[in-house]
């Protein structure tokens, strides 16, 4: 008779991280708590040798490389960790893989930092939202929302995970975002 295995620290962190990610994605606009601040826990819960990743930050890049994921330019990556706060950043994001109508799952996941609760007010509608959800985000370039709408030609598109310290919110491609 096997003893029930206990989760180790990594398993607990990865499980809690994915709980937050799945919760945030299935209810766009609602805030979830990551087990630790920053995007690293998201990377560790999702990435391994099967992934192609681009990370703007060098320290994060090195940690991601240690998972075995290939570091590639953003337009070849399935997971992209970068800020979306400048016109240059938007130029990079414009080139992200949005998958195809045959394989929408090949669209990239973009993980960006932002300040949640301040700045640009946004109105969200779509699956996962009962009527309308309102959020405020700061630290994201004003051109990002038009760019996202262009990339998300449903069912093609990208998922955006937004982290602010240990807080997470997510915008799947199915969400319509209106600036208000």
């Amino acid at each position: 008779m096997l003893a029930t295995p206990l989760p180790d620290a990594e398993e607990i962190r990865d499980n809690a991280t994915f709980d937050a990610v799945l919760g945030a994605l299935s209810r766009p606009g609602t805030l979830r708590d990551l087990p630790e601040p920053g995007p690293l826990c998201i990377a560790l819960a999702l990435l391994d040798r099967e992934c192609r990743v681009h990370a703007g930050d060098e320290t994060l890049s090195a940690r991601i490389a240690a998972t075995g994921a290939a570091l590639v330019p953003a337009h070849e990556a399935d997971h992209v960790f970068m800020a979306a706060d400048s016109a240059e950043a938007l130029a990079v994001i414009a080139g992200l893989d949005t998958g195809s109508h045959l394989y929408p799952d090949e669209g990239a996941t973009l993980i960006v930092p932002a300040r949640i609760g301040a700045g640009q007010a946004l109105q969200l509608t779509g699956p996962g939202i009962k009527s309308v959800e309102r959020i405020c985000l700061d630290g994201i370039h004003p051109g990002f929302w038009a760019l996202r709408a262009r990339l998300c030609a449903y069912p093609r598109g990208i998922e955006v995970l937004i982290h602010d310290g240990a807080r997470l919110l997510a915008l799947p491609r199915s969400t319509q975002v209106t600036e208000v």
Partner: peptide
């Protein structure tokens, strides 16, 4: 991890 990545995409494109 693979299942998590796929669940993210599955939820995103219902």
């Amino acid at each position: 991890r693979e299942l998590r990545r796929k669940m993210i995409k599955a939820v995103a494109v219902p």
